[in-house]
Design a protein around this nucleic acid. Structure first.
Lengths: 232, 232
DNA sequence: GATTTTATTTGATCGAGATCAAATCATTTG
DNA sequence: CAAATGATTTGATCTCGATCAAATAAAATC
């Protein structure tokens, strides 16, 4: 792994306060793998052997039941996923696949648990991380249960616009098929939802979106910090 | 608080391994309050001042946005709620109200955090608890996104039947209005969903349910341990 | 026990979103 | 560059679940 990547990983809340020696240990054991797009990394139901950290690219977490499949979350660098399964020594509840060429750092679950046993800073960091993740899922569930598809899309666009600098312009970071799954709708309906938002100043050109009437859009979306603010 | 209640609280995973002194400290400071039904205990958006523990009765966690409201979870004794908000010193993401006469143990957030700082066993217990809660929400989200309303009801009934002893008979632990919210549907549709399940051996008499064709019901429900098993 | 009040059920209708089918547009590959 | 593959959009239709309205049943209150 390049030093630059290691620095990025070290900056994660989860590792930032860890004792240097323990971090070095983990990095010693961990290995970085690069995968092409559309490679399935983990499968729900299997034992959680490794903590995964997306270092570059993007990973989709998804789940299946009956014949159906749904996107649960898209993880972008630098972030961990399936931490809870590793900590509980349980099976994965979600599968994961790369959305694009991605490099993923793999740390054996047993080593994570070993460091946990001796590094209190790590425990605190895990608590913070888990609490944040928990709240993120609760927000996602509120988004899903309290809003229509069009409203979810409108709020998603507003969040992205802020994240990308608040210039009234944004680029969709994932293809529309995946975005549809992420927003809990079909690609066809996502396409129609964009159509519905046109009168609210949403101009779509491929992955490029321009928000020309942000106030109108916000009037429809009614953003709520208890759902949309990632820092709350 | 009666000693019996204290023993029950002590048995919670969260407190079981805590050092005796720290537990005694918390119980010293904590106070038990009894509320009639339909009392709102906390409101989303307010600062998380207390960790709540349902000692008796039942508490509904719900959320609002726009004009809509949805049930997120029903908490039954003995269990904590809004742990993540307390740990992050953040605002509540959900509101809570009693569903029936309930007693709730309140522990000031600052004391929780103080014990955390000095009791490593508590840290471990918090990690386990948070990881479990996280996985519970993920399962709830899979339930919601991968199943129709009728399927969610069918699986709910099968889970309850097991929980209540596997005798082919169960009593709904909450009224149908709340159950509908819990299952992500309206009371009207819950009523119709029960009708749909009649041919699958679901006999309803008020809150009493008899499952006379469990295999048929399971055939429709297609239970999935990665959604329905609370221990996975 | 009669009267309210609240919960549940039933019927009719509406709307959001899914599905199926097909066209169009983009990207990749030979 | 042309063929082929995959993504996105559009149209038509269908299904699930929401909503509105009203009836019925059950509980709580006087």
């Amino acid at each position: 792994m390049r030093d630059g990547d290691q620095t990025l990983v070290r900056k994660l809340r989860l590792f930032a306060d860890m004792e240097e020696e323990n971090f070095a240990d983990l990095m010693q054991i961990a290995y970085l793998q690069t995968f092409p797009r559309q490679v399935q990394l983990i499968t729900e139901g299997e034992a959680a052997d490794f903590l995964h950290i997306v270092v570059s690219g993007a990973v989709e977490l998804f789940a299946r039941s009956n014949g159906r499949e749904t996107t649960m979350e898209v993880v972008r660098p630098v972030a961990t996923f399936i931490l809870a399964a590793v900590l509980k020594d349980a099976v994965y509840l979600m599968s994961a696949r790369t959305l694009e060429k991605s490099s993923v750092l793999l740390i054996p679950a047993e080593n994570i648990r070993a460091v946990m046993a001796r590094d209190q800073h790590f425990d605190k960091a895990i608590i913070t991380e888990l609490a944040s993740r928990y709240r993120a899922v609760v927000k996602a569930q509120k988004d899903l249960k309290l809003r229509t598809g069009v409203e979810r899309l409108a709020n998603y666009l507003l969040r992205q616009e802020i994240e990308q600098g608040g210039t009234g312009h944004l680029v969709l970071p994932i293809d529309k098929r995946t975005l549809a799954g992420r927003l809990g709708m079909t690609p066809e309906n996502l396409s129609r939802a964009f159509g519905t938002l046109k009168p609210y100043g949403v101009a779509v050109d491929g992955a490029e979106i321009r928000l020309t009437l942000p106030d109108d859009l916000a009037g429809l979306a009614k953003p709520n910090p208890l759902i949309d603010d990632p820092d709350v």
